[in-house]
């Protein structure tokens, strides 16, 4: 249960060229909220997430529950924020279980080693992602999607109140996509996990996140409920794409679903 507050967060790359990857981003994500970051390639989604975990230099403030992240040690921050990178570095000769156990690092003393409880947490996470059968296999011998789920398992084993996901389901089949996102949704409801995720699948982003923020060239173009952010006109302007946006309202619950369907610009052969 933690609030994440970002104020004027700015990320620039290069001493001379000065790419402004994230331009004065301000937002507050509350405990139990799921913020979806969308936007075209190079919009600054990953840079924003990387800044929060201190992997890129940045200006502005990042606070968790009123405490500046800048002033925390790596260990303190790791206990509060779990991060799934867009391109994780996978050690081929490590088993899935050993890898997921690394998520327990923030809780293990400097000279300590993992306890039975750490192992139990990892076993449970692996089970919830139906990864038990892969637990003792080497990562180098898993498929791309299996690996991606193991990376998610590591982040969940970290049991941090804030979860940052950078394209966590890009390699997953439709069934495992749903499984992974449902699991995150459940943890968010149950443990009031704060989630920020960068996603390219706009329909899934609309379905699972509570709020969407669209970035383009480092700036916020739109922010709010999926139904307001995802309009065909805006998608055409930002992504240079032609799409149909369907809104499908459930008669019983009154919940609406936003479905983004790409359209061919040329007539089908």
């Amino acid at each position: 249960m933690s609030d994440l507050r970002l104020a004027d967060l700015t990320v620039t790359y290069g001493r001379r060229s000065r790419t402004v990857a994230v331009d004065a981003f301000t937002d507050a994500v509350h405990a139990g909220e799921w913020l979806g970051l969308i936007g075209p390639n190079g919009a600054g989604k990953s840079s924003l997430l990387r800044a929060i975990v201190g992997l890129v230099a940045h200006r502005g403030e990042i606070e968790i529950d009123g405490r500046r992240v800048r002033e925390m040690s790596d260990r303190e921050r790791a206990a509060l924020v779990a991060y799934v990178p867009q391109q994780p570095l996978i050690p081929d000769d490590m088993t899935a279980r050993e890898y997921a156990l690394l998520g327990r690092s923030p809780y293990i003393g400097y000279f300590g080693s993992e306890t039975r409880r750490d192992r139990a947490v990892v076993d449970e996470v692996l089970a919830r992602l139906t990864l038990e059968e892969f637990a003792d296999r080497l990562l180098g011998e898993l498929s791309g999607g299996e690996r991606q789920r193991v990376v998610l398992a590591r982040a969940l084993a970290q049991q941090a109140p804030i979860l940052l996901l950078d394209e966590p389901t890009s390699a997953l089949d439709i069934g495992h996509q749903q499984q992974a996102l449902e699991l995150v949704a459940e943890l968010r409801r149950h443990d009031e996990l704060t989630v920020v995720s960068a996603m390219h699948d706009l329909t899934l982003a609309a379905m699972y996140t509570g709020r969407l923020t669209m970035l383009d060239h480092g700036r916020v173009v739109a922010s709010g409920a999926a139904i307001d952010v995802l309009t065909a006109a805006r998608l055409r302007a930002v992504f240079d794409v032609s799409v149909t946006v369907d809104v499908d309202t459930d008669g019983a619950t009154g919940e609406s679903r936003v479905i983004v369907v790409p359209r061919r610009s040329l007539p089908a052969p």
């Binding site: 790791a78 994780p88 996978i90 690394l102 300590g112």
Partner: peptide, 19 residues
């Protein structure tokens, strides 16, 4: 144990709490 964490790269090791 730290050497095992280093196996995922400097950046990810840092996000796992290793200085």
């Amino acid at each position: 144990r730290h050497l095992d964490v280093f196996r995922v790269g400097d950046e990810e090791a840092a996000t796992l709490g290793v200085s």
